[in-house]
């Protein structure tokens, strides 16, 4: 028996959220008296892989096949199923993402695993195997008993911070059997902002709403984000109006995030918006309306004009550094 962690790569580096998944898997492995194996698909430098040992992986399985360099849902599910078999894995841990979610679902059917998505804590194995997960878009939790032999856990960001050690993982090459049918879905083109901090990965997020009046005013959001090393996000009307790209839209119908710090500027705080951000550790609301609902969900608030307050915050951050 072992515990697997599925590791995603972005721009040649291991995603931060995947590192959390490896740490989580290592902790589950300790609970089960076994070890954690990280599975990496595609070609990536081996030094990077050994380092997975520092956050708890005893072993890394690498399928360094160029056909796996792109995240193909079916192929990935197939390869992971083979890794589960090879390692006799009881649990597969992964970080929630647009790829991870889609792959995990197919994998669950392939290996007949129970799947708990949006896990927010380590499992409770004192009596069965129970995972606490976030439901109703952050408005509640469900303690979910996983009844099958094989289990898949998709964790939310910021659920687990791996402890760093000096250990190195042994890297083992892995050559899964790939079928032509695994590549029936052809990836024709990938359009991706490079160099930006990806929203679901970010520890700090600065977000703007309709209160900013127009896309030409986003400079103040980007400057504050730049000073903080933060990603930028927006409310739904802002992406509906095409002021910002769709992948920045957070909330009930957008991306759900759980950074350490979420700063909302000129966003009213509608329940559908809060649904996507309410599991952030610390929330700051900046709004000129003292009655804006966001202040009820925030930890810190400033009633004021964004165009006055935000540049002053940027300046204060720069002075601090």
């Amino acid at each position: 028996m072992s515990i697997l962690a599925f590791v995603e790569i972005a721009e040649g580096a291991i995603k931060k959220t995947s590192q959390e998944a490896v740490g989580y898997a290592a902790e589950v492995a300790r609970m089960r008296n076994t070890t954690a194996t990280a599975v990496v698909l595609g070609e990536i430098a081996s030094a990077e892989l050994e380092n997975l040992g520092r956050i708890g992986a005893a072993k890394v399985l690498q399928a360094a096949d160029s056909r796996l360099n792109e995240g193909n849902i079916q192929a990935y599910a197939n390869v992971l199923a083979q890794a589960v078999e090879k390692e006799n894995a009881e649990v597969v841990v992964l970080a929630k993402s647009s790829l991870g979610d889609a792959v995990a679902a197919r994998l669950a059917a392939k290996i007949k695993a129970s799947l708990a998505s949006n896990a927010v804590e380590l499992p409770d194995t004192s009596n069965g195997f129970i995972v606490k997960r976030s439901i109703y878009t952050g408005k509640a939790f469900a303690y979910t008993e996983m009844n099958s032999d094989k289990k898949i856990i998709a964790i939310k960001k910021n659920v687990y911070t791996p402890a760093e050690t000096e250990n190195k993982a042994s890297v083992e090459a892995f050559s899964p059997t790939l079928q032509e049918a695994d590549f029936n879905v052809k990836i024709k083109e990938t359009v991706k902002a490079t160099g930006d901090i990806l929203l679901p990965e970010a520890d700090i997020v600065v977000s703007g709403g309709r209160g900013l009046k127009g896309p030409e005013n986003w400079g103040i959001i980007e400057e504050l984000a730049g000073a903080l090393g933060a990603a930028t996000a927006c409310s739904k009307p802002v992406s509906d109006l095409d002021w910002r790209p769709h992948h920045e839209h957070v909330g009930q119908t957008g991306i759900k995030i759980s950074p350490n710090l979420y700063i909302a500027v000129g966003i009213s705080g509608a329940i559908q918006h809060l649904a996507g951000v309410n599991s952030s550790r610390v929330i700051v609301a900046i709004n000129k309306d003292a009655d804006a609902p966001f202040f009820k969900a925030a930890d810190y608030g400033i009633v004021g004009d964004a165009f006055d307050v935000v540049p002053r915050l940027t300046k204060a951050v720069k002075e601090l550094k």
Partner: peptide, 30 residues
């Protein structure tokens, strides 16, 4: 069925929001 929910729970209520006067906005960063 492969999963069973044993219990639901609501998140702990948020504490009060600490308000910072706009004139002292910089204090937020501290």
């Amino acid at each position: 069925e492969l999963t069973t929910v044993t219990k639901y729970e609501l998140p702990a209520p948020k504490g009060a929001c600490k308000m910072i006067p706009a004139e002292e906005a910089e204090k937020l960063i501290t």
